[in-house]
């Protein structure tokens, strides 16, 4: 809605690209690993923000699409012997179709009912894959080391995964930004604020809602494909881990729900904090406790998150940080 004075999108894309190049240029694998994770979390958080922040539907079990994308891509690579990149792209398609099929009925539910339904769907998917021999059942699937030779070895494959995750993260942010500034995004936000009013002013809610849900599913599916390609192993408990889903919600809220920049800031801050807590021997044991405390303080006192708070505090920022 706002006329931008500094182009936010090019700035953030440039920033991420430079950041992504850093560990490659300085040949710093541990930093690369760290950034890989951050980009993955940025993707998850920004995607959830589209359905939760813009549209107002708390998708609690959103990680289901991460797991589905991971499984479909892994199947194509492991069983069909496909290359990673086409596997990733093709795996996103059934994930999107499933999102549309799920979204159609459950997006009619409101509030708590929707949130619970998404938990149910994630758990159902987990136990289905647990029992489905085609995908390796409870043990899951794992690569032979030889799989990575076609990419030039494990290290090169790992780098390929890193570049891919960077691209996926940047794509997610770009789409998130474009939606926020579009007429489609305005419809989503009107639905979020008051679906009945949205209908009265002429918005037919079902289509934009399903579209938002599908878009918010595609990027996690790609992130899942990339993560498990790099991981070399996929199993149901790890693919459909509810806790990771909830962690992504936490990042969105920490950073600022409904803003483009919030999920990016939230994901980075959360991961930084976790790293700090884990490596600090005195605090390592209280890692979860402190994370919980931080979340509670945010929810109780800074409900608009870091970015939201800054925008309220310094209104001039609103023109720069969407």
């Amino acid at each position: 809605m706002k006329r931008m004075r500094v182009p936010f999108l090019p700035a953030i894309v440039a920033l991420l690209a430079v950041l992504a190049a850093f560990p490659i240029l300085t040949n710093n694998p541990s930093m690369r690993e760290e950034l890989f994770l951050v980009f993955m979390l940025v993707t998850l958080a920004s995607s959830i923000n589209i359905i939760m922040g813009y549209t107002g539907y708390v998708s609690f079990g959103h990680i289901v699409f991460f797991g589905l994308g991971g499984y479909f891509a892994f199947y194509l690579m492991q069983i069909q012997g496909w290359h990673f990149i086409p596997s990733l792209i093709v795996a996103a398609i059934p994930s999107a179709v499933i999102a549309a099929l799920i979204g159609f009925p459950i997006l009619r539910l409101r509030g708590a009912y929707f949130a619970l339904a998404t938990v149910g769907i994630n758990e159902a998917m987990r136990v289905v894959f647990n029992n489905w021999d085609l995908f390796g059942g409870a043990v899951g699937m794992f690569f032979n080391f030889s799989v990575y030779t076609q990419y030039g070895g494990a290290k090169a494959a790992s780098e390929l995964a890193y570049y891919t995750m960077t691209v996926v993260a940047i794509a997610t942010i770009t789409v998130s930004y474009l939606i926020k500034r579009s007429k489609f995004g305005l419809a989503l936000m009107a639905i979020r604020e008051d679906q009945d009013v949205a209908m009265i002013v002429g918005i037919r809610p079902s289509r934009p809602k399903i579209a938002a849900y599908v878009i918010s599913a595609v990027f996690p599916a790609m992130a899942g494909a990339t993560f498990f390609f790099k991981n070399g192993i996929i199993e149901p408990g790890h693919a459909f881990e509810l806790l990771r889903s909830i962690e992504s919600l936490v990042m969105v809220v920490l950073g600022g729900i409904g803003t483009v920049a919030g999920p990016i800031v939230g994901a980075a801050a959360y991961e930084w904090l976790r790293g700090f807590l884990i490596t600090n021997p005195a605090l390592a044991n209280f890692q979860l406790f402190l994370a919980g405390l931080l979340l509670l303080v945010t929810v109780l006192f800074v409900s608009s998150g870091l970015v939201g708070w800054l925008r309220e505090r310094f209104p001039v920022l609103r023109g720069y940080v969407p």
């Binding site: 708390v58 979860l288 919980g292 979340l295 509670l296």
Partner: peptide, 24 residues
């Protein structure tokens, strides 16, 4: 403090307690 806030807020408030209990 947040009892009248939207669902997400109370979900996350109770989830934060979840994290704290499990952490300890």
């Amino acid at each position: 403090r947040v009892i009248n806030a939207p669902e997400l807020t109370t979900l996350l408030a109770t989830f934060s307690v979840n994290l704290m209990i499990i952490g300890i």
